[in-house]
Design a protein around this nucleic acid. Structure first.
Lengths: 254, 254
DNA sequence: ACCAATTTGTCCGTATGTATA
DNA sequence: TTATACATACGGACAAATTGG
């Protein structure tokens, strides 16, 4: 059966053919375009499939090699360098490191910046403090196997968690920091998930290539009494992660 | 203070300047680039801000007008046509229409196609049936206010829900169809959220523009006894929706 | 009714980048 | 490597529509 190409390569779309092909290949690679050894089809085959000149495919491959997605070996072929997406769990009791541990070895969380500042309207509403009240802002970055996974920005009520930055610097974990500051347990109350193109900051922080996608979560965590303790916005590299939403109660655990 | 442009407009990146500018404007519009009346800055101002010729900005605006994001009026200015993102709730008991009702008037669900087919490995594992066992496949499309919101593909155990297609055609709702087939209540067990660029099928079904993003959810619903009843993959237009993940139990509501 | 300022719409020409053969 | 075709980007000039004095 002759099926039409799933994604059409469009001319005069404002995106160069080689970049459309690179984007499509990046997508199809994770869907198993390569064979079991990670070997890609030859350039001439790809050129025929995409309906373009072989030179155009070569330009696309060169871009993916530059990104680290592919590796080309003269006389042997082109091979996939990529890996699978990590599962990032979103549960009532999600803990960042707990969730990703076991899937990867080299997991690392870093504090990029911190400040005490007056709460914006949004942060104040989420944390249940007055607008302009002092809040602690943490800028964090997490890496797995040397690749940036997510970039977070969190706010905490300074009156309650003034030592958050210092504690996080020692522990490298929000959960451990909360515990050190007297909060034994906390829960995820709500999470809003959106997706958008990576902006300049995302490209830099998460080491993405232009046109990449970020999954954005905006979350509110609360303590056992239901009082908000953390308001955060996290940007994930969409091609390195998938969000796993499980049931919160455990009524129908399978 | 002179701040550098948040997103740099890059030349020789494989993406035409007008498209980079269109993408950036689309993003900034939702962040409040326009004034309180939805009026955009004049073309010359945007050209100066992006560091390009006015004609290049005009090409970008033309693309956004074509998409329905902007509306240009000679002598008056350029105005935002867009609307807010709809909140799509993901809860233990999420029902599609219930969730979106109240946010929009014209909510519509359509059955595009249906078939009974042997279960693939994934669907079989999710539904708890043998690979190759007969399953019902439903292809659905939902619209709000005349704009496509999501495109779904669901599988059901044919032995239990053989009449799913016919029932859905009458009721236009999965929940109502389950009820008609004797399943009073069901729960969301797990949801995996990923994001990727829209492929040709997404562009067609959801009426998106090239380069658009789709949020993909893969979900398993179970009955009160924890037996899987539905396995589904849903693609959402990322610029029209945000997924709201709430706590499943209600322990810390408020 | 008229004018000036502002803003979008259209035309010209030219240079560069992209894709093919 | 060369040639060709087309899309992209720029610069300038002017027309057309709207607004407010």
């Amino acid at each position: 059966m002759t099926t039409a190409n799933e994604t059409m390569i469009e001319r005069r779309s404002g995106v160069a053919l080689w970049r459309q092909i690179a984007d499509r290949m990046r997508r199809e690679i994770s869907a198993g375009l390569a064979d079991e050894n990670g070997r890609m089809p030859p350039e001439v085959v790809l050129a025929a499939r995409f309906g373009v000149n072989r030179h155009t495919v070569r330009t696309a491959i060169a871009a993916l090699v530059q990104e680290g997605v592919l590796r080309a070996e003269q006389g042997r072929g082109t091979f996939v360098e990529g890996r699978q997406r990590l599962a990032y769990p979103i549960r009532s009791r999600t803990r960042f490191s707990e969730g990703l541990a076991g899937q990867t070895c080299g997991l690392k969380a870093m504090l990029l910046d911190d400040a005490v500042e007056p709460a914006s309207g949004e942060a104040a509403a989420a944390l249940g403090v007055d607008t302009g009240a002092p809040v602690v802002r943490l800028e964090t970055l997490s890496e797995a196997d040397g690749r940036p996974i997510s970039r977070g920005r969190s706010w905490f009520d300074a009156a309650r968690f003034g030592g958050m930055a210092e504690t996080f610097r020692h522990t490298g974990s929000i959960t451990a920091s909360f515990k050190a500051l007297g909060l034994a347990d906390y829960f995820r109350r709500s999470t809003v998930v959106t997706a958008r193109h990576a902006d300049a900051a995302d490209l830099r922080d998460l080491r993405l290539s232009p046109g990449a996608i970020v999954l954005v979560t905006v979350a509110v965590n609360v303590d056992a009494q239901g009082r908000p303790v953390q308001y955060s916005e996290t940007r994930f590299a969409a091609d390195r992660i998938e969000l796993h939403v499980a049931d919160g109660g455990g009524t129908t655990a399978g």
